[in-house]
């Protein structure tokens, strides 16, 4: 239950944890774009080294970081296998009955797997080092320009933070309702997927009714405390960028631009590979 409150936040109090969430969020966005521009294995390796380095600085055990990859193992396997068998190319490596595996297919499959794993790792590092509340605040701050085109930025951020607050409460309520149903003979653990799904209906109905009642009361409590989405509010917590945020931003920027340099201007990975030949 405790895990739910802070998502997968892993507190160690490291420098990475204390960085401004906006910098971290921006870094992740640019990182995701960057990953699609990685050209060769050397740069993949460099990216892994960068992430492992960051993990060490964040004082997060590598085991914890790798655990986040587990959720996408299936996806990685399926997409790799499909690519392996269905990519055609020029150099045929295996030809057995109707199965043809080309050199390009193997390369494609490996790169895709590496790319998916990389795409999972860095954002996981973000959620491991940043609380959902900080992320919400960061989003609100980054979306501020959208106010100009009348997007209700504050309301969106408030909805997100209330949702975060309600998750553990609704989890607890779900448990309570399930126990109450079990006490009256309900069975949630046996049968096929369909039967299990059907068994959840009597849990979901009271849960939804309860959620709406809560929403009503919460709205009343917010009214009583003068909440208005249009009035001019002040903000108690202000995010301030410090020197370390600029340094971190610069480091990320430098690493990511290496990828682009490598792809478009300066293929140094070829030189490294040439050394080994």
């Amino acid at each position: 239950m405790n895990n739910v409150v802070f998502g997968q936040y892993y507190p160690t109090g490291s420098v990475v944890h204390r960085l401004d969430a906006r910098i971290k969020l921006l870094a992740v966005i640019f990182y995701i774009i960057t990953v699609f521009f990685i050209r060769d294995y050397v740069m993949y390796a460099a990216m892994f080294v960068f992430i492992i380095g960051l993990t060490l600085v964040a004082k997060i055990p590598l085991k914890v970081l790798l655990r986040t990859v587990r959720t996408i193992v299936f996806l990685v396997l399926v997409t790799s296998i499909i690519n392996l068998f269905f990519t055609t190319g020029e150099v045929l490596w295996v030809h057995w009955k109707f199965i043809k595996i080309y050199k390009e297919g193997v390369e494609h499959a490996i790169k895709l797997a590496l790319r998916l794993i990389l795409l999972m790792l860095f954002p996981s590092l973000l959620t491991l080092t940043t609380t959902p509340m900080e992320l919400t605040d960061a989003l609100e701050s980054l979306m501020k320009p959208l106010k100009l085109i009348k997007v209700p930025v504050h309301a969106i951020a408030l909805i997100m933070s209330i949702a975060l607050r309600m998750i553990p409460i609704l989890m607890e309520e779900t448990n309570k309702i399930m126990l109450a149903q079990k006490a009256r003979g309900a069975d949630f653990d046996t049968g096929g997927a369909l039967k299990k799904a059907k068994a959840m209906v009597p849990v979901l109905v009271p849960l939804f009714v309860g959620a709406f009642r809560r929403a009503d009361e919460l709205a009343l409590a917010m009214d009583a405390r003068c909440y208005s989405s249009v009035a001019k509010r002040t903000k108690y917590k202000v995010m301030r960028l410090t020197a370390k945020d600029f340094v971190a931003g610069f480091i990320c920027f430098a690493v990511f631009s290496l990828v682009f340099l490598n792809k478009y201007l300066w293929p140094f990975d070829q030189m490294v590979l040439a050394l080994f030949k």
Binding site: V5, S161, I169, L218, Y227, T234
Partner: peptide, 26 residues
């Protein structure tokens, strides 16, 4: 119901909510 009248996940944010709405300086 105390659970149905809290907005924030951190106590100090919760208490800041009212004054923020009133536009009290930081």
């Amino acid at each position: 119901n105390p659970d149905n009248q809290m907005i924030a996940s951190i106590i100090e944010d919760e208490i800041a909510f009212g004054p923020e709405n009133l536009g009290v300086p930081r």
